[in-house]
């Protein structure tokens, strides 16, 4: 990371020394601002999305149609200079429609692999819960492993690789809700929700979002993004903070609020997201607040309310849990 972001980007505005955390913050703020100019009034969700990307995770957006899920994905791809594909999931989709297939090429006299839409840096898997479980799991496996294996050949997916899946709430008809084991593959789940009145008014008055998107400048390039991802891992987590994370995780397991508690993998994920969140805030160390803010998005889709809390929403329970675990002083 001592080779600087600018040096890699080739647009060296800053001197080619180690980029300071403050400078980094300005850059990241600029990204958030630009995304915020497209998706109005949803800064927390935007930050979570960006943190998820920086933490090398994949994002699940769960919302009703028309809330700006696709626009968010496009704005991200555009701002970060990522190659973007969109896969619209339908119930008759097959795994090959995503991963790609080998087709016999008459001229070469051999089978030639035609990569599917998953071979992109940012993949929007729209309405993933409309596809059959088999098709879903083809994508999820690719997400997990960062590679695609078909017909005996393993092909690496591009770097960085970021999947934004959208899902309609499971109450809608004709859907295959993702099972818990699959939900675990998504680092964060966010909800966009309806915009507040002020933002909605601005949206109505403003220009068409698609045209705005086309005009967005690229603020960072893929190598720069990879360096940022590497930098996330070096964000310091103090011993007391690790104690706190452990206390939070253990609180999800004991006390009967949830059917089952968070797994050790989820604990690691929580720490990773908190690191990314801290970096977004321009800090080189994690604060308890970073953990507290990201916990609902991280754990909401991984936990089911226990029997005594049937009917309660996981988010609310998590907020209660955060309030109940004392902070190490």
């Amino acid at each position: 990371m001592e080779r600087t972001l600018e040096a890699v980007q080739g647009t060296a505005a800053a001197p080619a020394t180690a980029i300071s955390t403050a400078a980094l913050r300005e850059r990241l703020d600029a990204i958030i601002r630009q995304l915020g100019s497209i998706i109005l009034g949803k800064e927390p969700a935007l930050r979570l999305a960006l943190a998820c990307l920086l933490a090398r995770g994949h994002l699940l957006i769960e919302d009703l149609p028309g809330m700006g899920k696709t626009t968010l994905a496009q704005a991200l791809a555009r701002t970060l200079g990522l190659e973007y594909r969109r896969i619209q999931f339908t119930s008759d989709m097959l795994p090959a429609d995503i991963l790609g297939a080998s087709v016999y090429d008459r001229e070469q006299g051999a089978f030639v692999f035609h990569p599917g839409p998953v071979f992109a840096q940012l993949v929007l898997a729209d309405e993933i819960n409309r596809a059959s479980p088999k098709t879903q799991s083809a994508l999820l496996e690719a997400m997990e492993e960062g590679q695609v294996t078909s017909e005996g050949h393993t092909r690496r997916l591009p770097q960085p690789f970021f999947v934004i899946a959208t899902q309609n709430p499971a109450t809608q008809l004709g859907t295959f809700p993702l099972p818990e084991s699959q939900l675990d593959r998504f680092l964060l789940r966010v909800r966009l929700g309806y915009p507040d009145p002020k933002a909605e008014r601005a949206l109505l008055a403003g220009e068409d979002r698609r045209r705005l998107l086309d005009r967005l400048p690229v603020l960072i390039d893929p190598p720069g993004l990879l360096l940022l991802q590497a930098r996330v891992e070096r964000v310091h987590a103090a011993d007391v903070l690790l104690d706190y994370v452990q206390a939070l995780i253990s609180a999800t397991r004991h006390g009967g609020q949830f059917e089952t508690g968070l797994s050790p993998r989820a604990g690691l994920a929580l720490l990773r997201v908190a690191r990314a969140w801290a970096l977004l805030a321009g800090r080189d160390h994690v604060l308890p607040e970073d953990v507290q803010v990201t916990l609902p998005a991280l754990a909401g889709h991984r936990l089911r309310p226990g029997a005594q809390n049937a009917g309660a929403r996981a988010d609310e329970l998590l907020q209660r849990l955060v309030n109940s675990v004392p902070l190490p002083v």
Binding site: N323, S324, L327
Partner: peptide
């Protein structure tokens, strides 16, 4: 420090981080 703030009615909540 927190005790002094608590004395004027601004007690820190147990789960409250410094920035919050």
């Amino acid at each position: 420090f927190c005790a002094r703030l608590a004395a004027i009615g601004l007690a820190r909540q147990a789960s409250e981080g410094p920035l919050s």
